[in-house]
């Protein structure tokens, strides 16, 4: 068995947690590491983004917070700058999202709104299951910035209110999010929290969350 301390492999030196039985890192893909160690598009000069469209989600108390600045021309996203407080996958997924919406001349706003967390994860080559909530925040911060764009450009009719009703005010988690998570097997509060972190920033919503889990379990699984 390789001793990861005494005989570190080059792989280990790249900055990952290494399982002692394997020489390869097990936690993050190379793409995630690339975006974590060399993040793209993070905001460096806030002064020149005073006019940009701003989106925000999360709070440092829950362990993840994200802020997004957008520049939009002809309904295409020309610039996406961000700041993130969070773990490696939070940083990498925001970085990847910024690349996805600005490549090829910029993504049309309506297309960007259709991006799902799964799309970001696919481009990252996957994330550990309990890290998924981080990229969920990425698409929410984008939506929040696009809503700011609609507001400032008199397209108020297009503002998309979160599909569903917001349950967790801090993380902006809706009943729809909870429904999806239950469908994917999160049938207890613990499992739901592993997936969404619901209630960590806004514990007052937990009783309602538990009620919703029971409701959707009965709806779909009759138990």
């Amino acid at each position: 068995m390789q001793d990861p301390i005494a005989k570190a492999t080059n792989e280990a030196r790249k900055g990952d947690v290494v399982a002692p039985t394997k020489e390869k890192g097990w936690f993050y893909t190379d793409t995630v590491k690339e975006h974590f160690f060399h993040p793209k598009n993070f905001l460096e000069d806030e002064a020149s983004y005073g006019e940009a469209y701003l989106g925000m989600v999360g709070s440092p108390a829950c362990g993840d917070a994200m802020k997004v600045w957008l520049k939009i021309e002809d309904n295409r996203i020309k610039d996406f700058k961000w700041k993130t407080f969070g773990c490696a996958s939070a940083i990498a997924s925001t970085s990847m999202l910024s690349v996805m919406v600005t490549e090829n001349g910029g993504m049309p706003v309506e297309d960007a709104l259709k991006l799902r967390p799964q799309d970001i994860m696919a481009r990252l080559g996957g994330l550990p299951a309990r890290k998924v909530h981080c990229s969920v925040l990425g698409d929410k911060a984008l939506r929040s910035a696009v809503n700011d764009y609609y507001r400032k450009t008199n397209q108020v009719d297009k503002i998309e209110v979160e599909a569903g009703r917001i349950i967790d005010k801090v993380l902006k988690i809706t009943d729809h999010d909870i429904e999806e998570a239950v469908l994917e097997g999160a049938d207890t509060l613990e499992k739901l929290q592993q997936r969404t972190k619901v209630g960590t920033g806004d514990p007052s919503c937990i009783p309602e969350v538990e009620q919703l889990i029971r409701f959707y379990k009965e709806k779909y699984f009759g138990a």
Binding site: A8, R13, G15, F85, C87, A88
Partner: peptide
């Protein structure tokens, strides 16, 4: 303050510090 521990631990690891 203002940063998240895991991210810092991974950057330290890249420097060979565990």
């Amino acid at each position: 303050i203002d940063i998240e521990g895991e991210a810092a631990v991974l950057y330290l690891d890249a420097e060979g510090i565990m």
